[in-house]
Each structure stands twice: as structure tokens, then as C-alpha cells.
């Protein structure tokens, strides 16, 4: 018999990675140029976490998935139009910045409070999912602190695989150095998982799931309370964009043998 889980996925939104980003000075510290105009997506590693959550929930009848997100409400609503079609979940929205220049510790405090406020939350069933790093702050800090605030000290980062055994214990594969995975066994919930890419392909759009999700998404967005999220105690001395452009030399119409010679000379030339 499989145990039902309460799976809470933490994930915010980030600018579409295809966009060019530039720093700009905002009223409360650094920001992105035209931040509110940039098209956004669900933070990619949290996106994977959501698929894994849905997959796990499907295999354990009675399970439920929540997505807890701190983001500017209007933008979150846009992103939800896409995300909602991918997997069944209930949204818990908090209205706040999704900027990478805010503090992980402050975001974690807000997320932990939002999780604690979920009606019927049962620590014996709780799995907290998220991306192992965000595409904005890229710190890998938020999930750990959420776990600490919830008193969960079975934590895993860079998770690529979670397998539940017949006795309810979980086997976890975490990325470590040199293209390897550390294998661990955890007795069961509660636990925190910061997901890397996992193994699941992006699920196809399911308009029915989308419609079902929208029933909770819209009220959640309407209810979303504004949260104070900044970077207290941090002084940004500078934020700069490196000069990325190289003066590319383009070599065309050259026989493979000659191209190879140049490459070999470059590789072996110390």
C-alpha cells in the first residue's frame, strides 16, 4: 500500500532564459532593466520539481500537490496560464518580488509561513520540493532554510531521482562532483528535495487539468497577500554585466584537414 503524500513545490518565476538581461538601479537596490516587461517562465529547476511532484502524486493515490510561489501577482497569473496545463496542483500565491537580488533567507521565511498555513498540513506526509538553485539568485539556499524553519533535517540537493520502496522508504540520487550521484536512503517524510533536472520529460499540455487548476489559481491570486521581501543588511557595491562579446573570427570554405590542423595546434599548444 502506498502512503499518500502532501507535496509542496516552492517555485517562483524568472525571465525567459532566451532574453538578454541587463542590470539597472532600482529604488530598493539592483534590479533588471525593464523587469516588468520581460516575458517570464516558472523557474526551470522548480519546473522539473513540479513534474516530479505530479508524477509521485499520481503513483500514490490520495496525494496532493501545492505550488507555493512568491512573485508579482500579475506576472504569476500569466505564467500560470502555461504551468496550469502541465500538472494538477493547488496554487498558494504570495505577492512579492521575484528578483534575484532579494535575500534567500527572507524568501524562505515567507515560504515557510505559507506552507505552515496550508490547511490540514501533516508533517508525516510532507515532502517539500523546489529547484536546487533558482535561475535568478542561483544560491541553492532557499530550500535549506525553508526546511530548517519547518524543522525538516532530511534534506537533499541536486536531486535527479526519487524512488519509493515498498516499505515507504525513499532512495534518493543527488548530484555530486565529477558527474556522479550520491545514493541515500531516507526513512520517509518529512523531507526536503532541491531538484536538478530529474528524469522526466516535459508533460504535454492538458487543457482539462488547466481548467481544473484555474479554479483554485484565480482565487489564490486574488487572496495573495503582499510580502515584504528585500535584501536587508546587504550592500551591493556593484552589479555589472561582463563584456560578453568576443571578436569572433569566422573561418569558412576551408578544407576539413586544414580546420583540423588549426584545432589540433590550438588544443596541443599549451
Amino acid at each position: 500500500m502506498s502512503t499518500p503524500y502532501q507535496i509542496v513545490v516552492c517555485g517562483s518565476i524568472v525571465p525567459d532564459p532566451l532574453q538578454t538581461l541587463e542590470p539597472a538601479a532600482g529604488p530598493a537596490g539592483p534590479a533588471l532593466k525593464n523587469e516588468m516587461m520581460l516575458p517570464a517562465v516558472l523557474d526551470p529547476w522548480a519546473w522539473h520539481a513540479l513534474f516530479e511532484a505530479a508524477h509521485l502524486a499520481k503513483g500514490a493515490p490520495g496525494s496532493k500537490v501545492w505550488l507555493v510561489s512568491i512573485a508579482p501577482k500579475a506576472k504569476l497569473q500569466q505564467v500560470m496560464m502555461i504551468v496550469a496545463q502541465k500538472a494538477p496542483f493547488e496554487l498558494v500565491a504570495v505577492d512579492g518580488p521575484s528578483s534575484g537580488f532579494t535575500e534567500a533567507a527572507e524568501a524562505a521565511a515567507i515560504l515557510a509561513d505559507a506552507i505552515k498555513a496550508i490547511p490540514g498540513l501533516d508533517m508525516k506526509k510532507l515532502l517539500v520540493f523546489g529547484g536546487w538553485e533558482s535561475a535568478s539568485r542561483g544560491a541553492g539556499a532557499t530550500m535549506q532554510i525553508v526546511g530548517e524553519r519547518l524543522g525538516v533535517t532530511d534534506q537533499f540537493q541536486g536531486v535527479d531521482k526519487l524512488t519509493v520502496a515498498g516499505d515507504g522508504s525513499m532512495e534518493i540520487l543527488e548530484r555530486i562532483e565529477g558527474g556522479k550521484h550520491q545514493v541515500s536512503k531516507c526513512a520517509g517524510p518529512p523531507a526536503v528535495f532541491g531538484w536538478a533536472t530529474g528524469n522526466l520529460p516535459e508533460p504535454p499540455n492538458n487543457p482539462q487539468t488547466g481548467m481544473m487548476n484555474m479554479r483554485t489559481i484565480m482565487p489564490s491570486l486574488q487572496r495573495a497577500k503582499p510580502a515584504k521581501l528585500g535584501a536587508e543588511g546587504v550592500k551591493f557595491v556593484s552589479v555589472t554585466q561582463p563584456s560578453q562579446r568576443r571578436d569572433t573570427q569566422i573561418v569558412k570554405d576551408t578544407p576539413p584537414d586544414e580546420v583540423a590542423k588549426q584545432i589540433v595546434a590550438w588544443i596541443t599548444g599549451g
Binding site: T248, I250, V251, V259, V264
Partner: peptide, 30 residues
């Protein structure tokens, strides 16, 4: 593709060439 991202300031040198042919020669020479 001579218009790929590498051509636009991402690489120091872009060889517009068939990688199958070039890498066979690279391996041979190495």
C-alpha cells in the same frame, strides 16, 4: 550555420564546417 550564436561574439573562432569531417581529421592528426 554561419549565423549561429557562436558567430555572434560567443566564440573566439567559429569554423563553418562539417563536424563529422573535421573531427575525423582532428582525431587522425592527434
Amino acid at each position: 550555420d554561419p549565423n549561429c550564436g557562436w558567430a555572434r561574439g560567443k566564440a573566439d573562432v567559429l569554423y563553418v564546417a562539417d563536424a563529422f569531417a573535421v573531427m575525423a581529421k582532428v582525431n587522425e592528426q592527434l
